[in-house]
Amino acid sequence: MSIQHFRVALIPFFAAFCLPVFAHPETLVKVKDAEDQLGARVGYIELDLNSGKILESFRPEERFPMMSTFKVLLCGAVLSRVDAGQEQLGRRIHYSQNDLVEYSPVTEKHLTDGMTVRELCSAAITMSDNTAANLLLTTIGGPKELTAFLHNMGDHVTRLDRWEPELNEAIPNDERDTTMPAAMATTLRKLLTGELLTLASRQQLIDWMEADKVAGPLLRSALPAGWFIADKSGAGERGSRGIIAALGPDGKPSRIVVIYTTGSQATMDERNRQIAEIGASLIKHW
């Protein structure tokens, strides 16, 4: 067993022997301040990774656009098919120029040779490549099948209805392509620590998230040296922004954090800054 596999296998073990965790309302004060600064709703939840206990939450059962955070769930569904012998990570998928959609920095470079399922998941999570996500959605049967996968996990809230990039439209009061912070946090925890996926697939999923290259201005910008984070960000229309993450000190994750916002007129930089400040408060009061 590799060191990384050992780390993920012992996530519940280490967490069980940690000192009790206590909620700190100071972080919620910052979440509410972010709402004021952005002029928009902000949803927040913080779960203990081992027990699933909610440590703090704000608007945990209000719907927010998922945006690209759905790509972690998508690759979880792909990995479940791999575990069941219905898919192979090494299978190569070929596609054409007509398949390319807006923001496809990886797939646009491989029109000639195609990409493997493993490479597509890596591109979808680490670079948020939209064509990679659409190609992977095709392998599982489309958005409705991802929703069905989530329902089978016990998540009857999260739903995907459309493809990239239309799913980022974020129309107010439109339930399409949305989740709730509580539902997303619980589902992410199941994917990373539950028995739904094999140990190898859980490790692969967290490795992809740990290698995320496009979430630097968010929670990662607030992390002290030595902290662990595996995350996936999302951005959408109407001032929408979000991030889902597993993080913790001492090089291992111990909490799940989900943050979503929508309806702001603020710039992307300002949305990023507010999420980073929430992260800084979380870490300060850990």
Results as ranks from 00 to 15, higher is better:
Ala280Leu: 14
Gly239Ala: 05
Ala77Phe: 11
Gly234Asn: 00
Arg63Ala: 07
Leu79Ile: 05
Met66Val: 11
Gly239Trp: 03
Ala132Val: 04
Thr198Pro: 06
Arg273Ala: 12
Val82Met: 07
Pro217Ser: 09
Glu237Ser: 13
Thr186Tyr: 14
Glu56Asn: 11
Tyr44Pro: 01
Glu175Val: 13
Pro181Met: 02
Ile259Asn: 03
Phe64Lys: 01
Lys213Trp: 08
Val42Phe: 11
Pro249Met: 09
Asp174His: 03
Pro172Trp: 10
Glu164Ala: 00
Gln86Val: 15
Asp36Lys: 15
Pro224Leu: 05
Ser201Gln: 07
Ala185Asn: 02
Trp163Tyr: 12
Ala215Lys: 04
Ile54Gly: 04
Thr131Asn: 05
Ser128Gln: 01
Arg241Thr: 06
Glu35Ile: 00
Asn272Thr: 09
Lys252Asp: 15
Lys252Gln: 12
Asp250Tyr: 12
Pro224His: 06
Arg59Trp: 04
Gly194Tyr: 09
Pro249Gly: 06
Thr139His: 09
Glu56Ala: 10
Gln97Ala: 14
Thr262Tyr: 10
Gln265Asn: 14
Ser128Phe: 01
Ala40Pro: 03
Ala182Val: 14
Asp113Ala: 11
Asn152Phe: 11
Ser80Arg: 15
Leu74His: 00
Leu191Ile: 11
Arg81Gly: 07
Asn168Gly: 10
Arg176Cys: 08
Gly76Arg: 00
Thr131Glu: 05
Ile54His: 08
Asn134His: 04
Gln88Ser: 15
Asp250Pro: 09
Ala225Arg: 12
Lys144Gln: 13
Glu210Pro: 02
Ile259Val: 12
Ile206Phe: 10
Ser80Ile: 09
Asp48Lys: 03
Lys284Ile: 09
Lys109Asp: 11
Leu73Pro: 11
Ile275Gln: 04
Ala170Cys: 14
Ser221His: 11
Ala132Asn: 02
Met153Thr: 10
Thr139Phe: 07
Gly248Trp: 02
Leu73Val: 14
Thr27His: 06
Ser128Asn: 01
Ala246Trp: 06
Met115Pro: 02
Ser104Glu: 02
Ser254Leu: 11
Asn130Ala: 01
Leu192Met: 14
Val82Asp: 05
Thr69His: 06
Asp231Ile: 05
Glu119Asp: 15
Glu195Arg: 13
Arg159Val: 07
Gly76Trp: 05
Ala170Pro: 09
Met67Phe: 05
Thr138Gln: 14
Ala183Pro: 07
Glu237Ala: 14
Leu282Gln: 06
Gly154Thr: 05
Thr138Lys: 15
Gly263Trp: 05
Leu223Phe: 04
Arg202Thr: 14
Ala182Gly: 15
Asp33Gln: 15
Leu135Tyr: 00
Trp227Arg: 01
Glu35Tyr: 00
Leu79Trp: 03
Thr186Phe: 15
Gln97His: 14
Gly216Thr: 08
Arg92Phe: 10
Arg255Thr: 04
Thr107Ser: 12
Thr179Val: 03
Leu137Val: 08
Gln37Thr: 14
Thr158Ser: 12
Thr27Glu: 04
Pro224Gly: 07
Gly76Lys: 00
Val72Ser: 07
Thr138Glu: 14
Leu196Trp: 14
Arg273Glu: 15
Pro253Ala: 13
Tyr103Lys: 01
Arg59His: 09
His110Trp: 09
Arg189Lys: 15
Pro165Ala: 07
Leu135Asn: 03
Leu192Ser: 05
Gly226Pro: 06
Val106Ser: 09
Gly43Leu: 00
Arg176Ile: 03
Val117Glu: 04
Gly248Cys: 03
Glu175Thr: 13
Val42Ile: 10
Ala200Cys: 15
Val257Arg: 00
Glu175Trp: 13
Glu195Asp: 14
Tyr260Ile: 08
Leu191Met: 14
Ala133Ser: 10
Lys30Tyr: 05
Leu223Cys: 10
Lys71Trp: 00
Arg273Asn: 11
Arg91Asn: 09
Gly85Cys: 07
Thr69Gly: 01
Phe58Asp: 01
Val257Leu: 09
Ile93Ser: 04
Arg189Ile: 08
Trp286Ser: 02
Gly279Asp: 02
Glu62Cys: 06
Lys32Met: 13
Thr179Arg: 03
Leu218Asp: 04
Ala266Asn: 15
Leu218Phe: 03
Thr112Ser: 13
Gly141Gln: 06
Leu205Asn: 01
Pro165Phe: 04
Leu28Gly: 07
Leu28Ile: 15
Ile140Ser: 05
Met209Pro: 00
Ile278Glu: 01
Asp231Gln: 06
Arg255Phe: 03
Arg238Gly: 11
Gln204Glu: 12
Asp212Gln: 08
Leu47Ile: 15
Met127Trp: 13
Ile45Asn: 02
Leu150Gly: 05
Gln274Tyr: 10
Tyr260Asn: 02
Thr262Glu: 09
Ala266Lys: 10
Gln265Met: 14
Gly52Ser: 06
Glu175Gln: 13
Ala245Ile: 03
Gly90Thr: 14
Ala133Arg: 00
Ser233Tyr: 00
Ile54Pro: 08
Leu191Cys: 07
Asn168Ser: 08
Gly216Phe: 07
Gly43Ser: 06
Leu197Thr: 05
Gln86Ser: 15
Leu191Tyr: 07
Ile206Cys: 10
Glu164Tyr: 03
Gly85Arg: 11
Leu79Val: 06
Ile171Asp: 15
Tyr260Asp: 01
Ser57Thr: 11
Arg91Met: 06
Arg91Pro: 03
Asp113Met: 10
Gly52Asn: 08
Arg189Asn: 10
Phe58Trp: 15
Asn134Val: 00
Glu166Trp: 12
Glu102Ile: 12
Cys75Val: 09
Glu102Gln: 15
Leu197Tyr: 06
Asn168Gln: 05
Pro165Asn: 08
Val72Asn: 03
Ala148Pro: 07
Ala34Trp: 08
Pro143Asn: 05
Ala235Gln: 06
Val258Asn: 04
Asp269Lys: 10
Ser80Trp: 15
Met268Ile: 12
Arg220Thr: 03
Val117Trp: 00
Lys232Ser: 00
Gly234Arg: 00
Ile229Thr: 02
Glu46Gly: 05
Glu166Arg: 11
Ser264Ala: 10
Met209Asn: 01
Leu150Thr: 09
Ala84Gln: 14
Gly114Pro: 03
Ser281Tyr: 11
Ser233Val: 00
Thr158Lys: 02
Glu166Cys: 13
Met184Ser: 02
Val258Trp: 03
Glu108Ser: 15
Met115Ser: 05
Gly90Leu: 11
Pro65Cys: 02
Ser104Ile: 05
Trp286Val: 02
Arg91Gly: 05
Asp174Asn: 05
Glu61Met: 13
Asp99Ser: 10
Glu175Tyr: 14
Val106Asp: 08
Asn173Asp: 13
Glu87Trp: 06
Glu56Phe: 03
Arg41Ser: 10
Phe64Thr: 02
Gln86Ala: 14
Pro253Trp: 08
Ile93Arg: 03
Ser201Tyr: 07
Gln97Cys: 06
Ser80Pro: 05
Val29Lys: 15
Glu270Lys: 14
Asp33Phe: 09
Glu270Leu: 11
Gly239Arg: 04
Gln37Trp: 14
Glu195Met: 09
Ser96Val: 13
Gln88Met: 13
Ser104Gln: 00
His24Val: 14
Pro217Gly: 09
Lys32Asp: 05
Gln204Asn: 12
Met127Gln: 11
Ala246His: 05
Gly248His: 04
His24Gln: 11
His285Pro: 01
Arg202Cys: 09
Ser96Thr: 13
Val42Ser: 04
Asn50Pro: 13
Lys252Leu: 15
Pro105Gly: 06
Arg159Met: 07
Val82Glu: 06
Val31Leu: 12
Ala280Lys: 15
Arg189Glu: 09
Glu119Val: 00
Phe228Ala: 08
Ile171Thr: 15
Trp286Glu: 03
Ala182Tyr: 15
Val214Gln: 07
Thr147Tyr: 02
His285Asn: 15
Ala123Asn: 04
Lys190Tyr: 15
Leu188Ala: 08
Gln265Thr: 14
Pro224Glu: 06
Asp36Val: 15
Glu35Phe: 02
Arg271Val: 10
Arg159Gln: 10
Lys190Asn: 15
Thr116Leu: 08
Gly52Arg: 06
Phe70Cys: 08
Val101Glu: 08
Met115Arg: 05
Val29Ile: 14
Thr187Gly: 08
Asn134Ile: 04
Pro253Thr: 09
Lys232Phe: 02
Glu175Ser: 13
Val101Tyr: 05
Glu102Cys: 06
Pro143Val: 06
Thr158Trp: 01
Trp208Arg: 01
Thr116Cys: 07
Ala222Gln: 10
Thr27Phe: 03
Ser233His: 01
Gly251Val: 08
Arg59Pro: 03
Ala148Trp: 11
Asp155His: 01
Val31Asn: 00
Thr138Arg: 14
His24Asn: 14
Asp33Ile: 11
Arg159Phe: 07
Gly226Ile: 04
Gln274Arg: 11
Gly114Ile: 02
Gly263Ile: 04
Ala230Arg: 01
Ala276His: 12
Ala40Asn: 05
Phe70Trp: 08
Thr261Asp: 08
Asn152His: 14
Glu87Val: 10
Asn168Asp: 05
Pro253Val: 09
Ile140Met: 11
Ser201His: 09
Gln203Arg: 10
Arg63His: 09
Asp231Met: 02
Leu150Lys: 02
Gly43Asp: 03
Thr267Ser: 14
Ser201Arg: 07
